[in-house]
Every structure is written in structure tokens, then in C-alpha cells.
Write a protein that binds this DNA or RNA. Structure first.
Lengths: 339, 339
DNA sequence: TGTCATACCTGAACCGGTTCAGTAGTCCTA
DNA sequence: TAGGACTACTGAACCGGTTCAGGTATGACA
């Protein structure tokens, strides 16, 4: 079947292309009876607007882009991103926007090159980004490129927003975790964070310190990279032969490192939660299924993705910069803290 | 900065748009010195072709689409798809194609509506699909819509291919699993498959039966839906109070159901692998981390995604229908079968 | 009756590329 | 020296929408 076009519809109805366009887009300039005739014919012939023609004349691509940077072989292990993606996609679909996905390696230059290309080719109308970095070059880059964006996990700021983004109150989340441990009698805890280059990890570290200090608790910190082995190694270094300080609880930056921590405890002959308690800063099926099951902060990635996408949509069609605070996360108490 | 266009380049160089276009696309019709001048200027001005203009005039969108149908809240639990996605995306990027992702619920009508829309709007040049269904309406639909596609997990066919796709030799995979169990002394096994509406599940059931029969082993089958609870419930029904037959090993259709099976065994007070062995038809971190760790068929989703995407690329630019057989999967022997 | 506002509609330009048909100039060959 | 082949280039049409400036017809009002 040959594709119908606006010109085709116009010819069949004996009217001009312009009228057909006005009718189809609900714009004034056509009578109700003409509009109906156009709409009926369009439906009958299964006419759809050509997305590229529309993109060209409207200078809007109708798509937003998202770059996932991670080792392709490890990407499947992060359920958090899949959840985000699901939330993002449902919100975008409601706003009639398509999602363009790109996966690149861990080299940050690739992510930036992708943005440059997208902007140059006008392939996406906006971009969703994650994880604010220390001295993050990306906001300035995107501003220079004229690409609207939303940063999921933006720093909290007082005063007017510099860009759209979602924020998380790390102080509340930290207090939730630390209080939980304090209540269970822990006085010396460890915090194995993700990489320090992520701003939110720095903030978490500071907030955990503050919350602990308020209870008179001591904190040791280690830097991990979110991989299983990092959690494992950190725990070995904290609690193995060379350890001197009596750490009785470990907070780990994500679910994978928490799993690594459990493995390490088993190797070291330490019982969980009797000897050492474990808390994960990210919930997932892994935390539920592990034995012992792991107490975790539940962050609801689907909802977060949805909110981030909604921010982007409103930025795109109203130009309103805004930040939105994520609701505080709930702690799901499980066996690893003796609950 | 105002966007540069081909017309702008042409004006600056004092030549025609046509020459600029030829020069930029490596087409004949311009002298080498002109080509260089165009290329140099384009680089200097950071010119990129407008994707929508190009799409319009070439009648090619430069994107391929993929619909993931699943409950948004459960999508994160299937690492297999994330791996596929990663493989697909890297292959597409090499072929300079963008990936358009759409997530819909479990209603198959939504998937079909998406294809209709994509075809009507000419938003994608082709589509990647998964999981051949019983009497699958999708190939016929896509043919009618004129949308090229690749079906990952197509039925094996003798004779010319009706469409492009990847195939898996379920007989080999089944034999791998069944032989492994036979070798360990199991004579009565259970097979908890995924939903029968998937063709590959039917084939797996038949192949397991055949492999088992060859060894004189008996097989009981149950149908699951890939969810944790399904694996749990199936095992309870197979091995709980009401069970009569002495099943000593259970094959589960994916990693989640395998985890459910482990939970059920624990509840029933059965030891794994001493009382009952478990094999998962899909490997993942869950299988590695479970205790006992679960013997699983490793399917390498990243590679599979890559192959599927390559098939689509060659279909799009050469029109060659082809099917490609996936290499046989390896069985990763772990504790759940006493390895 | 003339003037004006309004509703409805149209031709043409435009978005930014690709591509076809045609022109001029050069060189080779008979 | 005419003819043909080839190279380098150009103007214009085209892809399929959107949108602007204008053109009629109609009715309201003075």
C-alpha cells in the first residue's frame, strides 16, 4: 500500500494541503464540517504523519535521548537502571515522545561525543542524564550545545535552579540507615561508598558521618566501584586479619557490593547479623534472596524515572527549569541487621 | 550559534548545494580539491547533517525500534534483556543506527499498536522482536506494514527462510542439561517451563522429553510464568506432601523460577543438591550468588543481541533474509547439582 | 449602500537535505 | 575537425509536513 500523504488527502477532498494540516492538528482556520471530513478520511486511509517531515518542519525531533555508560557485560547486573528506564519510558510515551537509547563504555568522552552528535544532527530534543559528577562538565556542554536536559541526581541548591533535575535528601536517607544501626546497638560502623567522583557519594559519606556523630558513633569509610568484588575486598580489609577496629556493621553503596560483603563474611567465618550487620543503599531482588536477606534502602527507581522524564517534558514544552525532590527512601529491614 | 546548513556551506564556498552534498557523502561528481574544501569547512564549522532532513529525503529514519513488553515493575528483574539490549546497541552504533526503545505492558495489542504507529509514521526502518509465539501474528503484521524485522528466537525451519531471525538448537541445550543430570544419577526429573505460548518453551519441553527418553529417564512437566512464585509453587506441587513420584531433580525455565525453587526446597526441609538438584535454563548473577549456587545454562545475551542486530542491519541495507543459529549454550556446573 | 470584521480557505515559501537532468568545458579519437 | 566520452558542476524538483500572507464570501453595523 502506498503511503498516504497530506497532499493525497487534500487532492481526494478537493481542498488545499494547508486546510488538511489545520484540520488534523486541531488548529483554527477550518470549518467543523471540513475538519470532520479530513479526520474521517485520514482514519479510513490509516494516515499517519511522517515523523521526519514533521520533525523537519517543526524543528522538533519528538525524541529524547539517554546515554547509559557502563561496561556492556555488566549492564545487566544493575536492576536500578532498568527500573529507571521503565519509569522514564512510560512517562515519555504519555507525552508522545520517543526514547533514543545509547550505550557507551565507561569512557566519559564517549558520552560527551554522543551529546555533540545528537545536538548537531538535531536528533533529540532533550537529554536525560544521571549521577552528577564532581566538576561535572556535562551541564555546561549541554548548555553550549543548546540541548535541554534533566539531571537525575542533581546537587541540592538553595536559590534559583541552574538546571532541571531531581534531588535526593541524602541527610534523611543517611539518618534512616544510621538510626537503624544505632538502635540495634552498633557503635562502630563502616561505610563502603561508590566512587568519590559521584557527587552523591560524597554527600552520602558526609551525611553518614554527621548522623553517626550525632549518636556518638564512629565511622570508617572505604571507596568501592559498585562491583561485587569491591564490596568483598572492602569487607576483607575492614574485618580481616589486618583489621584493628571493632566494626560491627557495614553500609554498602549498592546491592552488588552488599552481595560481595556477604561472601566476604562467609569466607572470614563471620556470622551475619550476629557478628557483623549489613545494610545496602539500594534494594533489589538480590537483597531479598540473599541469605541472610539484606536490609536495604528502597529507592523506587520506576517512580524516579517517571519524575525525571516528566521534568524533561515540561522543560521541553514550557521551558520551565525546575528541581524536584525525591521522597525519602524507606528502609526495608531484613535479616542482615537482625530484624 | 546558528546551525550551519548545506546551503550555508554552499554559499560560503560559492558553489551549489548539490556539489556540497556530493562532496560530503563521498559521491562522485566533484573534484578532489572541491571535496577537500567542503570537508574542511564542514569540520571547521562543526556542521552535522540534520537527521530529520536526511530522513525525509532518503526515506530512511536511521533508527530501529524495539518493544519490550513486560510489567514495568518487574522489568528490572530480567537481566537477560538488559544484556541483549547492550549487545544490540553496540552493534547498531557500529552500523550508525539509533535504537528507539518502547516499553509496553503485557497486553500484546500494545506491542502491535506500536508497530503500526512506527510504520505509519516511518519512525523506524526496522524492528527487533523476541520470542516467537504460537501462531505468532507479528510476522504477518510487520510484513503487511512493510517493516523489516528480525525475530530473535525464531523457529528452526528447513527450506528457505520466511524471515530473518536467530535460532537456538534446543535439542542440544536440552541434551546438555539432561546428560548432566543423568550422569549424576537422576532418573526421574521435573521440568518447569515458561508459558506454553512461547514456541521455544514448547520445543524445550519436547526436547527434554526426548533426551530423557533416550536415557530411559522419566520427566514430569509444569508450566510457569518466569516469576519467582511460579518456581516456588511448582516445586511445592512436585515435591510437597501431595507428591507421589520420586523426582530428584528439577529444571527451571529461568533464573527467577530457580530462585523460587530454592526457597521452596528450604521450606519443605529438602536439601539441595542432596535431596533435590536444580538446574536453571538461564544463567545470571542470581544463580551464582544463591546458596547453593545454581547450575545453569549460560546463554550469553550480549553476543546474542549483537548477532540479532547485525542480522537486522544486513537486512536493511542489503535486503538479505537470513537465519543464524546461536552457538550451543554452555552448562555452568555449580553446587545445586552437586558439582 | 458602503465599510469592516470575521470565518474559511488557498498558494507558496519553508525546513535541510538528496538526486535528477542538463550544461559547459576538456580531452581523446577517427 | 567533427563526434563522442568524460569530468565538474548547477538549477530545480523532491521528500511530507507547517505556516504565513493574502483572497473571497458572509454577515453585522452605521
Amino acid at each position: 500500500m502506498a503511503k498516504e500523504t497530506i497532499a493525497g488527502l487534500a487532492k481526494r477532498l478537493g481542498i488545499s494541503k494547508a486546510s488538511v494540516s489545520y484540520a488534523l492538528n486541531g488548529q483554527p482556520g477550518v470549518s467543523e464540517v471540513t475538519r470532520r471530513r479530513v479526520l474521517d478520511l485520514a482514519e479510513e486511509l490509516e494516515w499517519y504523519p511522517s515523523s521526519s517531515a514533521r520533525a523537519l518542519s517543526r524543528s522538533r525531533s519528538g525524541a529524547v535521548g539517554m546515554v547509559l555508560s557502563a561496561d556492556p557485560d555488566l549492564i545487566g547486573t544493575e536492576p536500578y537502571y532498568m527500573g529507571l528506564l521503565a519509569g522514564i519510558e512510560t512517562a515519555l510515551a504519555e507525552g508522545d515522545m520517543a526514547l533514543m537509547l545509547r550505550m557507551v563504555g565507561t569512557d566519559p568522552a564517549q558520552e560527551r561525543a554522543t551529546y555533540e552528535r545528537w545536538a548537531g544532527e538535531r536528533k533529540v530534543d532533550g537529554v536525560l542524564m544521571f549521577d552528577h559528577l564532581h566538576e561535572d562538565p556535562r551541564p555546561a556542554l549541554l548548555d553550549r550545545l543548546g540541548l535541554p536536559f534533566v539531571l537525575h541526581g542533581a546537587p541540592e541548591r538553595h536559590g534559583p535552579a541552574l538546571f532541571s533535575g531531581t534531588t535526593t535528601d541524602h541527610a534523611v536517607d543517611s539518618a534512616t540507615i544510621v538510626d537503624h544501626l544505632h538502635l540495634r546497638g552498633h557503635r562502630r560502623i563502616a561505610h563502603v561508598s561508590g566512587p568519590h567522583r559521584f557527587l552523591h557519594e560524597e554527600q552520602r559519606i558526609a551525611c553518614v558521618r554527621r548522623s553517626a556523630a550525632a549518636h556518638g558513633m564512629a565511622v570508617v569509610t572505604r571507596e568501592g566501584n559498585y562491583a561485587l568484588a569491591a564490596g568483598h575486598d572492602a569487607v576483607v580489609s575492614l574485618l580481616g586479619d589486618t583489621a584493628e577496629d571493632g566494626v560491627t556493621a557495614v553500609i554498602l553503596g549498592n546491592d552488588l557490593m552488599s552481595m560481595g560483603a556477604l561472601l566476604a563474611l562467609r569466607e572470614l567465618g563471620l556470622r551475619c547479623p550476629e557478628d557483623v550487620a549489613i545494610v545496602s543503599w539500594d534494594d533489589s531482588l538480590h537483597c531479598q534472596l540473599a541469605s541472610p536477606s539484606v536490609t536495604a534502602l528502597s529507592r523506587n527507581p520506576v517512580m524516579q524515572g517517571r519524575v525525571a522524564a516528566e521534568l524533561l517534558l515540561s522543560l521541553l514544552d514550557a521551558g520551565t527549569l525546575q528541581t524536584r525532590a525525591m521522597p525519602a527512601s524507606d528502609l526495608v529491614a531484613r535479616s542482615s541487621t537482625g530484624s
